[in-house]
Amino acid sequence: MTQYLVSVLTEGAIFGIMALGLNVIWGWSGDFDLAYYGYVALGAYMTLVLTIGRQPPPVQYILGLELPYPVAVLLAVASAMALALVIGLIALRHLRGIYFSIVTLGAVYVLYAMAGQFVPLFNGYQGLSGLINPMADALGIDFNSYQYFFLGLAIAVFLLVYFFMSRVSSSRFGLALRSLREDERAAAAFGRDIYRLKLKAYVLGAGLGGLGGALFAAYLSAFNTSAWAPLETVVLYAAILVGGRGNIRGVVLGVLIVYVLIEESTRFLPEIPGHPGIVLALRPIVIGAALVLFLRFRPQGLLPERHYVDRVQPAAAEANAP
């Protein structure tokens, strides 16, 4: 049971980081990005090729370095941000609404095809493996307590990200991003460089996706095309929507509900004899239905976005009210 709890919490922290990143792009800047899980995957792949070293043929992939895990994580985040910069430069220039979504959807499927088909990149469908308990030796952590160490690491990174996002949320930068979401023509009329701001948000969000992926790779110790699907992003969207788009507490609540509650509760449903896979199929049904129902009946989510409430009472406030 403890082991189980540890794995749930570790995953929750990792998905929390990813969801907070996507919230920058969709929750604040307002772009429905379907390439997001591509940045997660790239972060995971890059972490592996930077840490696991060379392996004998027929296994092949780029780099094959043996960098320390923390360095690899930083480089993985940087590569996710670089990819987001390239895609964002193209897709955010002129495209909005569904056109932006469609192009990013295309981008992630191209990445998925490359990862699966182009073997020299990340070893194709076989994928990469061999990142076992990074930093364990250096820190002298034994095999049994490593999972607790990694849980602590994931939670620490999550809290750091949460703290940064709460700063961003209440900053002028965060407010300016929201103005793009609400009306970008007005934002431009009042001096905002829409393209730059959106690009910054996009790269920042993708960086957090890459960070989530880098942790995920270490948690799984391997990564391949069956460990991710381009549309995994939709689950992150469901979490943000259910919890409260734009509200970082809401996003975390959404991750708890969607990943922990829905995923874990379906895990314990009994299999129906003769119909394998039913329980596995229920999960996306519930998530898909939650997406539709929340968009329809509670688009602001369980914890709506919070705004600055001014409590200073100017002397003549009431007298002047219209």
């Binding site: 009306d183 007005a186 009329a189 734009g246 976005e305 705004h307």
Partner: peptide
């Protein structure tokens, strides 16, 4: 009028 709808008047 192109107000930022979800933001408050003060914002």
């Amino acid at each position: 009028p192109r107000e930022w709808r979800e933001l408050t008047v003060l914002e």
